[in-house]
Design a protein around this nucleic acid. Sequence first.
DNA 1: TTCCATACCTAGCATATCTAGGTATATGTC
DNA 2: GACATATACCTAGATATGCTAGGTATGGAA
Lengths: 108, 108
Amino acid sequence: MLKGHLDAIVLAALEGGPAHGYAIIEAIKRRSGSTFDLPEGTVYPALHRLEQAGLLASTWMTPPSGRKRRVYSLTRSGTAALADRRRAWSRFSQAVETLLKGGHTWPA
Amino acid sequence: MLKGHLDAIVLAALEGGPAHGYAIIEAIKRRSGSTFDLPEGTVYPALHRLEQAGLLASTWMTPPSGRKRRVYSLTRSGTAALADRRRAWSRFSQAVETLLKGGHTWPA
DNA sequence: TTCCATACCTAGCATATCTAGGTATATGTC
DNA sequence: GACATATACCTAGATATGCTAGGTATGGAA
């Protein structure tokens, strides 16, 4: 479960340059060692939402062989949003780490 | 937002011994440096859910002064579940970390 | 020619957290 | 005595987010 970190992951995937939805899904799976094998029904709506929000821009491309693809790239606000998400993740994960660490006791 | 890791956090809070709901909320806030300031409407239902699932047990206690409290403690399955959740968190956070790291490129 | 991989899409479901209310007791303050 | 605040519990319903499960279409491999 990604619960709220999907946007960050998708934005980060596009940091290395433009890509189309299907390739993004494959990359997330590969790079995460299959920990995240996201269904299309999760990723495509997310891409639409992010474009709607102005964080991504898209254009249709027809490759030499194969079918049409919608290629997404980060906008300026997308890049800024990614930086925000990274900070949010850092804060979040450090807090969880601390809470899960163990060794906490109750005041008398 | 806790993004699905609330159960782990609550279970971990009770690892140091039994406690009542209100104290758990305060502890999570304090230990997380206010990153998680959870509303009661989030935590109480979670406690009920975890008790229903057999991961927690509760008894009513009346302290020398103050009103009645429902005190929760980890069951045996609760302890096991916590270990599972810790593993899940570890896997999850490492995957996100990798994906957010940056420096990824697209194959030619 | 049949199957699989590629590539896109959406409606509706499931679930988890939060909002916003409610009840009640004890303590401190004006 | 009156009133506010902190403690302590509870729940119905709204909201958000990801997933299920379906659909369309093209191109290459067996």
